[in-house]
């Protein structure tokens, strides 16, 4: 598919700026053992929270949309997965 002239896809980091967050100081998701977390999440995570630096899989929780996809695709021992506490995290308005 080609894009409409003048219409450019928005990069994910800019797209996430449209969504409101109240980011907690503590991460609600943490990689415990990256052998139990598939690298494919760099493609599939809807907020691109997963990135690889060299061989290492990194996760940044700030843009998390709390969908649960990584929990489904990971081994239970791969991730510590919780919802954010105190009402923090994503604050949907128009969805």
């Amino acid at each position: 598919m080609s894009e409409e002239k003048g219409l450019k896809p928005i990069k994910i980091e800019d797209l996430l700026q449209r969504t409101v967050y109240d980011v907690d100081e503590d991460p609600h998701i943490e990689i415990i053992d990256e052998r139990g977390v598939p690298k494919e999440l760099t493609m599939l995570c809807p907020c691109s929270c997963y990135t690889t630096v060299g061989e290492k899989l990194l996760y940044s929780y700030e843009g998390c949309l709390e969908c649960g996809l990584c929990r489904v695709l990971s081994e239970p021992w791969g991730l510590r997965w919780e919802y954010p506490k105190s009402g923090r995290g994503v604050q949907y308005r128009f969805t």
């Binding site: 409409e4 994910i12 449209r18 949309l65």
Partner: peptide
């Protein structure tokens, strides 16, 4: 990536005729 697939749809030459360059207010999953 998944978000890029959605952006491809938003910028699709046929469908985007409807909304043009209207602002994206929110993104979610």
């Amino acid at each position: 990536t998944v978000p890029m697939l959605l952006e491809k749809l938003r910028t699709h030459p046929f469908f985007s005729k409807i909304w043009g360059d209207a602002d994206v207010l929110e993104y979610g999953a």
